[in-house]
């Protein structure tokens, strides 16, 4: 655990007045406030640091203790024990501070304090009487493309708790869903935070997805391409037979209506599947085959 320089965090010098501290806190909070920096973990962390620094420096009692013992935080416990007799029964008054009992941003986002803070002021040093909302959690859920094709249930563990969710068919890579109340537990009876899940969908070896459409480049034997025929194609909804017209050119694109990806939360609606034929030229020709191709070329 390292010493935390609260003055440095608030970009102040040690002679800063209460007005300076208030101004510095407001200025930095406006820059790093989570409401103004959604989904920015760095800003969230910085905001917690700013809150903690403000919590200490804006409270004359805590500031005095920090100035005296901050760097020797390992010995702060002695101070704590000595001081407890004097200040017992007065804590609620001392720690009301900025934000009062209102459900403030500090409650919402800055409820956690560093180990350094805890060692210097103890857990009760935080304004524990206020109700505050639990922390929001962010998690990633990795799916195969095929898994995202069907509505299914997934169980995953967040902070030791198993959470079962229904993943709707058609979910997109990078899409975020919010599960209300599945974040950190609220403190002092406050509401639980929310859980944000980002879906990460892996590439598929055959199918590529663009919105609700699927694309696949499939090999077509030369003879089928020239003479026509039928080819069985595996899709996410099962095997289908495709008629290939004679003289099909390399790169020909075939559209299979409604055989693509399901449209998110639009039951029964699907995108299209596009198949691009890549004609396979036979290799290792036998002398007879070579002879026939030569003959064909002379016709």
């Amino acid at each position: 655990m390292e010493f935390i320089d609260y003055y440095k965090i608030l970009e102040l010098d040690k002679n800063a007045t209460q007005e300076d501290i208030k101004k510095a806190y407001r200025r930095l909070a406006r820059k790093h406030h989570p409401d103004l920096n959604p989904n920015d973990k760095e800003a969230h962390k910085k905001f917690q640091e700013i809150n903690e620094a403000n919590e200490v420096l804006s409270d004359p009692e805590k500031r005095k203790k920090y100035d005296q013992y901050g760097k020797d935080w390992q010995h702060a416990e002695h101070f704590e024990k000595a001081g407890r007799g004097t200040h017992a029964g007065n804590e609620a008054g001392n720690y009301g501070g900025f934000g009062g009992g209102r459900h403030s941003a500090e409650d919402e986002f800055g409820g956690q304090f560093s180990d350094f803070f805890e060692s210097l002021f103890g857990h009760s040093g935080a304004r524990s009487q206020a109700k505050f909302r639990g922390q929001d959690y962010h998690a990633e859920l990795r799916l195969q493309l095929q898994e995202a094709y069907k509505t299914h249930q997934q169980v995953f563990t967040v902070n030791g708790k198993n959470i079962r969710i229904t993943v709707p068919a058609g979910v997109e890579n990078g899409q975020v869903i919010k599960l209300k109340g599945h974040g950190g537990t609220g403190i002092n009876g406050g509401p639980a935070g929310d859980l944000y899940i980002t879906f990460i969908i892996a590439d598929h070896p055959v199918f590529r997805r663009s919105g609700n459409d699927l694309y696949a480049t499939l090999k077509l034997p030369l003879y089928t391409a020239i003479l026509g025929g039928e080819v069985a194609v595996d899709t996410f909804s099962g095997k289908i037979k495709l008629k290939v017209p004679p003289e099909t050119q390399n790169g020909t694109k075939v559209r299979l209506k409604s055989k693509g990806f399901p449209v998110y939360k639009q039951e029964g609606q699907f995108g299209d599947l596009y198949i691009v034929w890549s004609i396979e030229i036979p290799t290792n020709l036998t002398p007879r085959q070579k002879e026939l191709f030569t003959e064909l070329s002379r016709l």
């Binding site: 406006r30 406030h33 941003a105 919402e108």
Partner: peptide, 13 residues
């Protein structure tokens, strides 16, 4: 509404 309240009361906006 909670967000707007925080912006107004906590950040003086």
């Amino acid at each position: 509404l909670e967000k707007f309240s925080r912006l107004h009361y906590d950040l003086d906006i």
